[in-house]
Nucleic acid binder design. Sequence first.
DNA 1: TCTGGGGTCCTAGGACCC
DNA 2: TCTGGGGTCCTAGGACCC
Length: 439
Amino acid sequence: MKAILDCNSFYCSCERLFRPALLRRPVVVLSNNDGCIISRTDEAKALGVPMGQPYFQAKDIILQEKIATFSSNYNLYGDLSWRVMETLRQLLPPEKVEVYSVDECFLDLDHIAPAQLHDFCAHLKATVEQWTGIAVSVGAAPTKVLSKVANRLAKKDKAATGCIMVLDSPEKTAAALRATPVEDLWGVGRQYALKLRQRGIFTGWDLRQLNLNWIQKEMGGVVGVRLVRELRGEACIDLKDPLTVKKMIATTRMFGVNVTLKKEIKEAVATYVTRAAEKLRRQDSAASLLEVFLIAKAEEPPPGKRFRHGPHIGGCVELPQATDHTPDLITAALDLVDQLFEAGRTYKKAGVMLGGLVPVGSVQTALFAPPKATPTRQQRQLMAAVDNINFALRNDVFFALRNDVLQFAAAGNGRRWKMRQEHRSPRYTSRWDEICEVK
DNA sequence: TCTGGGGTCCTAGGACCC
DNA sequence: TCTGGGGTCCTAGGACCC
């Protein structure tokens, strides 16, 4: 059996953890730049605040209902997420724990006797809640897709299920699938849901009966077939090896204000490259492909039409040799900005993507590259030192700055373009100067 | 005024090989 | 009149996830 354990309204729960006064009050958390609502508690949901709604549209109801509102505080969420996952790794062999997202985790429970499953899930839940203070839900079933179904139903009726559902018989599974609309299945998005509904397929149970040839043709080939097989109880999606590294690394942000100056675009791009290169080194990879893109300001969307981003202006270079050295990546990225930037345009967003990742230990030396293209031992040591200092001081009271202690000059220091975070809570668990005080 | 960020996997089709 | 068969590799784009 497999299980998925996820944190209830994770970002909101993190905010509540340090403010017990918010315990039964509605809470929402906003995306970067205070753009959209990306987490909401049951109370906020009950007041009719939709997930993903732009903040400025929800402002009226937020004020009217006195909904507590926070900018996203990833230092805090990242730290609490780590505590939840670490707790699970203490309760299960670590290779049976697959961290799927910041607030979700797949578990392999094959070693638990069927009769004990429910109790074991309850034990996991109670321990995580006691050790971290974050409430969680658990769904268990023979496959990943079915465990997602179970988890959703467990959360939907918290009082009846106690946030735990185990699908350990064909009858329970059938009932669960009949109660699950297709669009709420893991792997069915807007497009497929529409297609299925037009064919009269409304629930997971309906989908499970469909002919695999049709699925193969109409639902993304093997992806759809795998989904339906999983609905039938045939495990097709294994737990992922916890040691797999990323194949692509991206850092992209909306600007906090409109940007028209090339200098500012370059500062932002250099900042994003720095961040991406840090992630690169953390997984011991080197990148051979670098892409930079800019998003220009969107035209007014026609009334009633969905919001769309402005034109995407992107460029890509193949590096002469894979590297994880920030200065080399910045140089290449700024060259791209020179090619992409058009004076007179207004930009809303920029991003950097690193691809063609290879293990840093086995970088192929370029035949025609000048000898200095290979990062030297000193350059490696330099980057390691920069990372160590920044990681350490990011959490230190004496350097409680918004920016890193060590920065590249190309990243600038005006940073007018930085994102807005008007409602950020203190970083209770990762900054000494922002720790919770009891009076 | 104002609409997030970071990923994965798969397919189709083109270019190219012998 | 009539133009094979069997591959590989790459890219762009679609769909999905949280």
